[in-house]
Design a protein around this nucleic acid. Structure first.
Lengths: 243, 243
DNA sequence: CGATATTTTTTGTGATCACAATACGGCTCG
DNA sequence: CGAGCCGTATTGTGATCACAAAAAATATCG
């Protein structure tokens, strides 16, 4: 039951004038986003500290921070693990994304200026390029960058942190959405979004963003990729106590 | 500019078999929710630790946790403060509440059983009672309880933590919404919501929740209560660096 | 007298240590 | 052979300390 692969992490390649805490946080966050840590995997402070070659202290803070963002789960016995996924929860996360992100897009719309449109175009091109190269990791990252760039146009930002929390929870499974998108890749919803932006058509923008998100979801669900990573229907798992 | 009232906090009355960290966290969270700490107030670890009579360690973790929930702000110079509010940000927070909470209500609707309806009725009665007593603090708390009870019906909870983050950010100002609601108190939107639930009418429920939220907002804005607590239009405040 | 430079103090960060609670392993007993 | 018990090891928590960076206060120069 307890999964114990060595869990290779590192702080190398991270801006060394950041605090140790920040480096640990990013390293962990990155690992989670890429699905490098399997759901249900128990994380101990000392193990991570030894792995990253730092004292337990910054690790503690990073774990607590990630737990506050719902990227990790603190069980009643004070143990920390990557939350497990269920089909229903997956669905809820995606529907929450649709609700939040279409809202964020609409609120950002009036603030989008030509230079940001250029930036969006540039990112979209990068996505297509990465797609042609077959670099799914990069597609996923650039896709997020596209969405973030859009929502960030709104200078009074309150939704982006919430959206990122959802991304983080989906992180371990997002890569599935792009892992096999051969010819299946969506008709370019991003272009629909760009059109809506140019026309300042809020409703069309909402629709484009919602469709973009749902496309990825539909693919993952239909492909059955999800079941592989989910915990089996062992009905009554030890109820995680939410703090 | 630097506000330095003694900032009275305490851990008394908190379940003593909780960890120190949890007690500190709750104490701070509560203070923020009640607006006991003015926006822009700088918080230092040692000051809080001395005030609460604990070591700096649990305070550090609590601060970081609250920062991750957007209840506190970590400036570039690593200093922590209660985020300042602006009229636009206030508006954004409320619109985000509408979007997220009406969504959460809709997703919870199919899971609401008679016993939960009873619970909701009970809470609503408590609100009316507190209102008649003029206990605005209690009205506010019970109102939150009502919303939480509704959204919690959904067993695959992903939105509630995000919603609570919004509540926390609005916390210092929420009390304004109920501070003077004399005869101004909204036509009971909660009853509209209850009707929608009984009829399993998702759209009506969304409308009722949205109206309930917007009522409070409209009151605060129109009454001009907000300006008192906001920082003046000092255009270029030191840009908080988001981590 | 006002602006800049320098010293002093405060503050966050990270490491180490001590302790209590929990989990794990082996043991005994049925 | 299996379930319950107990001892050991591991883990999270919280306190204390050392250090470097930032802020505040003071001194210095124009």
């Amino acid at each position: 039951m307890k999964q114990k692969p060595p869990l290779k992490l590192t702080l190398e390649g991270l801006d060394p004038n950041l605090t140790v805490n920040q480096r640990v946080y990013r390293s962990l966050r990155n690992a989670l986003m890429c699905g490098a840590i399997p759901p249900g995997r128990a994380l101990t402070i000392r193990e991570l500290a030894a792995q990253l070659d730092v004292s337990p202290m910054p690790v503690r803070e990073a774990l607590r921070q990630l737990a506050a963002e719902n990227a990790l789960e603190i069980l009643g016995n004070r143990r920390v693990q990557v939350p497990k996924m269920s089909a229903m929860k997956f669905q809820e996360l995606y529907e929450a994304r649709v609700a939040l992100e279409s809202h964020a897009a609409e609120r950002a719309l009036p603030y989008i200026d030509p230079s940001r449109i250029d930036e969006l175009k540039r990112i979209d091109a990068a996505i297509d390029a990465a797609y042609l190269e077959g670099d799914h990791e990069k597609v996923s990252i650039c896709n997020q960058r596209f969405h973030r760039c859009l929502y960030e146009a709104n200078p009074h930002q309150v939704t982006l942190p919430l959206i990122e929390s959802l991304w983080l929870q989906l992180g371990p499974f997002m890569r599935l959405a792009t892992s096999q998108l051969d010819e299946h890749y969506q008709v370019d919803r991003h272009n629909e979004a760009m059109d809506a932006i140019r026309k300042q058509d809020a409703f069309a923008l909402r629709r484009a963003i919602a469709a973009d998100i749902r496309d990825g979801n539909a693919f993952v669900v239909s492909s059955g990729l999800l079941e592989e990573v989910m915990d089996q229907p062992q009905a009554a798992a030890a109820a995680p106590r939410r703090e």
